[in-house]
């Protein structure tokens, strides 16, 4: 029950922080609040038993992404922006998509039940066999490194691709500014 209470409170807090990010005046404030959003996310991941994800979210979301945004903002000269106005088109899209999703989750099995279909088919093998087949206690690491190792390879390639893209973009910057 305690666990659930924390979950409920953290989720509510997260929504407040998210609205704060969107409504914030000034980009520095928005970025810093976004960092806080990622940290609360990481906290939620801990209460939902996803410790590895929490650690990564804190390091990558709250850490790396926030720093990158600040660095980019600095190079863009921290310009002032127009005051937020209500964007009716966006509101319609969001309400439509959100409404569909709420309808779509109505018959999803309740959060947290051990006999949900998601926990039945593929996952038990990881929990029951990985200790023997892989030999390390952290099941997430086992799946990441072996059963679904190819995804992890793809993930590395994604980072490389982004790095290459950033380099291609920023290495020619001086030339352009000289024009």
């Amino acid at each position: 029950m305690m666990e659930e209470l924390i979950d409920v409170l953290l989720l509510a807090a997260l929504l407040l922080v998210a609205l704060q990010v969107i409504g914030s005046r000034g980009l520095v404030a928005a970025i810093m609040t976004f960092g806080a959003f990622s940290l609360v996310c990481a906290g939620l991941f801990v209460t939902l038993d996803a410790v590895d994800v929490a650690f990564t979210e804190a390091a990558v979301g709250a850490g790396v992404a926030t720093l990158l945004m600040l660095a980019a903002l600095q190079r863009c000269g921290g310009e002032s922006e127009a005051a937020p106005r209500v964007h009716w088109g966006a509101l319609v899209v969001v309400l439509g998509v959100g409404g569909l999703l709420v309808w779509g989750t109505l018959d999803l099995p309740p959060v947290g039940e051990a006999d949900n279909p998601a926990h039945q088919h593929v996952a038990p093998r990881y929990l029951e066999q990985s200790g023997v087949e892989i030999g390390i206690p952290n099941v997430v690491t086992s799946v990441l490194a072996s059963y679904r190792g190819f995804d992890t390879l793809g993930e590395v390639v994604v980072i490389f691709t982004a790095g290459l893209g950033v380099w291609l973009l920023l290495s020619s910057r001086r030339r352009e500014e000289g024009e």
Partner: peptide
């Protein structure tokens, strides 16, 4: 979706 109530983090 992955959460199981009263379950532990997946570290054997």
């Amino acid at each position: 979706v992955g959460f199981v109530r009263d379950g532990a983090a997946p570290i054997l």
